[in-house]
Amino acid sequence: MSDYRRSQNEAHPNKTNTLMTGIILLLILFVSIQIWFLFGALNNALRENLAFAITTFVGSFILALASFWVLRYLPDPIRSEKGKAPERKDL
């Protein structure tokens, strides 16, 4: 049976790798900004600066949602070669 996904993967073998790297870099960026927010909130909000704490919390929450959303696009794991080998023989 013709398999569009498989032939596309064979034509662009680095695609999964690039996608994974992109997602991880994006996640690292989100987490870095969140650490910055948390550091700022700890420094300011502990001195009764509530507006800053709320603003950073909203920003951090949106970034967390973005992080979860980006995880949807994680490529599926590559199946083991053992699983694929007999399939090819059958074809």
Partner: peptide
């Protein structure tokens, strides 16, 4: 990548904790 997502959620909760505390 999943752990980064988890860490991201934990940081947001931590930030929320600061708001609740103050």
């Amino acid at each position: 990548a999943k752990y980064l997502g988890l860490l991201s959620g934990a940081l947001a909760i931590g930030n929320g904790g600061i708001v609740i505390k103050s």
